[in-house]
Amino acid sequence: MVTDVPPVTAALSGVHKSYRRGPASTPVLQGVDLTLRRGRCVFLVGPSGSGKSTLLAILGCILSPDQGRVEILGREISKLSPPERAALRLRHIGFVFQRFHLIRGLNALENVCVPYRLRDELNSTTVGHAVELMHKVGLGKHVQDDPRQMSSGQCQRVALVRALASGAEVLLADEPTASLDARNGQEVMDLLRELTLAEGKSVVVVTHDRRIFPYADEIYRLDEGRLSTSPEEAALMQTSG
């Protein structure tokens, strides 16, 4: 019997990471193994300071591990220079930040098009694609709006479209629903799932929000730098799934 296993987009094995504060070294990740596959949505949960953001930063090629191997889309990141990692992020990794980090002074569409601009790919086709995505997420009437005049939910959708519009294969979302109410949070997760998984992207969501656990294909708990599957969260995921 042959089972279709989606291709791997990112693989971490034996990843260790410590932060040095003065003479002391504080371990944050201790031997983390994780595999991301296309079309799968992985949730990372755990208490504050457990290393979720660090793990997300390593997956996003922002940080390098002290030990272990990290492969993103077949490339070993420890062998890449900082500019090469930045280029990898620009081409293949999309971020949805907890606090949106939209650029003041740019309207919603211009914010969405920032990755195109960074990639020197801003043209009528890419702008059209961005507008289409904005319509898809219900921002059709807000294309020219100033994000400062938009609600948190709308801003998070702008941030989501910004991450998606660039065509990234790996999407990393840091507490994407933390600033949103239940309805908006659900809408954002619906969109994230629909728009990413349909296109075979790998999604990693760092969250404390138990309401969105049903959107996960896998949930991992990070505790004291160690990654494990959690029966409790898995139960929540399956109950609603």
């Binding site: 500019p83 990898l88 971020f95 650029i103 003041r104 960074l118 660039s166």
Partner: peptide, 18 residues
């Protein structure tokens, strides 16, 4: 005032020259 925005640009992959 805009450090976080520049941080976000860097996270998205903006090059130094950009």
């Amino acid at each position: 005032d805009r450090l976080s925005e520049f941080g976000a640009l860097k996270a998205m992959g903006a090059a130094e020259y950009q």
